[in-house]
Design a protein around this nucleic acid. Structure first.
Length: 472
RNA sequence: GGCCCUAUCGUCUAACGGUUAGGACAUCGGCUUUUCAAGCCGGUAAUCCGGGUUCGAUUCCCGGUAGGGUCACCA
């Protein structure tokens, strides 16, 4: 491997579905790697066997594939640091643990879980932060694997370090503690094994959420014990929920990333939106394709404060990405979301104007906003009347419209021709609505609908005349 | 409670000591118009508070306030 090559990773736990917060972390790590022609590694951190959810790993891979985040090393592609699933790397962690024991920097926890819990409660009562090391045994027993193995903090001191996003950070000795390296079930803790793996895999930039900032002194003390230089830290601000100022988590309604797929969002729009949630390019440009994003992405411009999720902006961005599709692609997508009886490509333009994501089509269909294209609508005859126009006048206008439309060649019944036929008639009236409204309503049966010209052109000459006749 | 982080329009953000504090979403108004949608044009709207430093602070420092994170045999 070349010197100085950027290597980042995304290291999710298969403990549930992957939500958009996780996805943004993955995205930033990936953008950082791609921007620098580096490597992006996917690593599955499945050391919590209690909380592991079957199928979660597959789900994570599916989300990443959907948005186009590819990995150079990891599950299903392999790589020089194989395997990429932590439960298959237990020997490695043990090797590191033994090394620490030899140095006198790791020891078995002699207390029962209940005893430790008591220490914790006492600290809480005294309104102090709980520190296990205050109860550290004077003499270390030999570790036989039945007890948790703890790290002995080599030196209780303050730490100062640099974070790419948050700048210079520091924490006092209270942040340091004898954390658990290996649990009594034999699996390592995150605090331990992520560091081992990051070292082994040559990770240069660790990108993760800012909730880890308070743990970094612990990591630093472990790096010191291991005599390894820590990587570059890149902590990301939280994504906040839409209603409160709470960190966006599963409990506060953070959605499964795949739900956005099901709702008909375009993956590049999700990527674009997520990229802007806590990061901003130098220019005022906001609409980016994924490859443009790789070009302009810059970790230095990541925000410090948390950003609130905003569905309106996501929808707007999604629409902008939809507009980048070709006419054929748009038509194809729309037809996919349309039921059998509405499979008509001519509907595409009027639908496209009215949606910001494909899933909106489903809503339009459910609300009956399109059903008049499939069958003659039932409607309230009173509503044919435009404002205070007399009913006789309406009938007369409808007849005029019928005559004008009847004169158009059936094979040439286009929107333009229809407009050319009706507009001169409408212009002669006091208000165009006296003619256009009853025509539109006769064709659609809806208070709100597309204009009568396009409706008529889609319905065709025969159906149009028949509906006008019925109205009369 | 200890420790840590953050603070510009409702929201996402620009500004890296000197700007009429800019852009985007949302909102409001106008144009267009037969209704809706789309489109175009325009408006309202922000530097949390108090001290310093400075000729000059959104910007630097200190204090307050508010919000967030963390204090697991979870990651």
């Amino acid at each position: 491997m070349e010197e100085n090559k950027v290597v980042t990773r995304f290291a999710p736990s298969p403990t549930g579905f992957m939500h958009v917060g996780n996805l943004r972390t993955a995205l930033y790590a990936w953008l950082l790697a791609r921007k620098n022609n580096g490597n992006f590694i996917l690593r599955i951190e499945d050391t919590d066997k209690e909380r592991e959810v079957p199928g979660a790993t597959e789900h994570i891979l599916k989300v990443l594939k959907w948005v186009g985040i590819d990995w150079d090393e990891g599950p299903s592609v392999g790589g020089p640091h194989s395997p990429y699933t932590q439960s298959e790397r237990l020997d490695l962690y043990k090797k590191y643990a033994l090394n620490l024991i030899e140095q006198g920097l790791a020891y078995p926890d002699p207390y029962t879980a209940e005893e430790v819990e008591q220490f914790r409660r006492k600290a809480e009562q005294e309104k102090r932060a709980f520190l296990y090391r205050e109860h550290r045994p004077e003499k270390f027993e030999k570790w036989d694997g039945s007890k948790p193995l703890r790290f002995k903090v080599p030196e209780i001191k303050s730490y100062h370090w640099h974070d790419v996003v948050f700048g210079d950070l520091s924490a006092g000795p209270e942040a340091l503690d004898d954390f658990i390296l290996i649990k009594s079930d034999g699996y390592p803790t995150y605090n331990f094994c992520h560091i081992v793996d990051d070292i082994e895999m040559g990770i240069t930039h660790v990108v993760r959420g800012q909730e880890y900032i308070s743990s970094i002194p612990k990591f630093l003390s472990l790096y010191e014990a291991l005599k390894i230089n820590p990587p570059i830290f890149v902590c990301l601000p939280h994504i906040m929920g839409k209603d409160g100022n709470k960190k966006l988590g599963k409990r506060d309604g953070a959605k499964d990333a795949l739900e956005y797929k099901e709702e008909g969002y375009i993956s590049s729009a999700i990527v674009n939106f997520l990229s802007l949630l806590g990061w901003h390019p130098k220019s005022d440009k906001e609409i980016f394709t994924v490859s443009e994003l790789i070009n302009v992405f810059d970790v230095q411009r990541i925000q410090k404060s948390g950003a609130q999720w905003n569905d309106d902006k996501l929808d707007w961005l999604n629409k902008e990405h939809m507009k980048m599709l070709t006419r054929e692609e748009i038509e194809k997508n729309i037809l996919e979301w349309l039921p059998e009886e509405l499979q008509n490509p001519k509907l595409a333009p009027i639908i496209f104007e009215r949606i910001s994501k494909w899933g909106d089509i489903k809503e339009m269909v459910e609300k009956g906003e399109l059903s008049f294209f499939a069958k003659q609508p039932e409607y309230d005859r009173q509503k044919l009347i435009f404002k205070n126009t007399l009913p006789d006048k309406i009938i007369e206008n409808l007849k005029l419209a019928m005559n004008a439309l009847g004169a158009i060649d059936e094979n040439n019944f286009s929107q333009e021709k229809i407009k050319d036929a009706l507009m001169p008639l409408a212009d002669r009236l006091e208000s165009r609505g006296e003619l256009l409204h009853p025509v539109r309503y006769a064709l659609s049966g809806l208070d709100k609908s597309p204009d009568p010209f396009i409706i008529a052109s889609i319905l065709g000459k025969n159906e149009t005349l028949s509906r006008l006749q019925k109205a009369i």
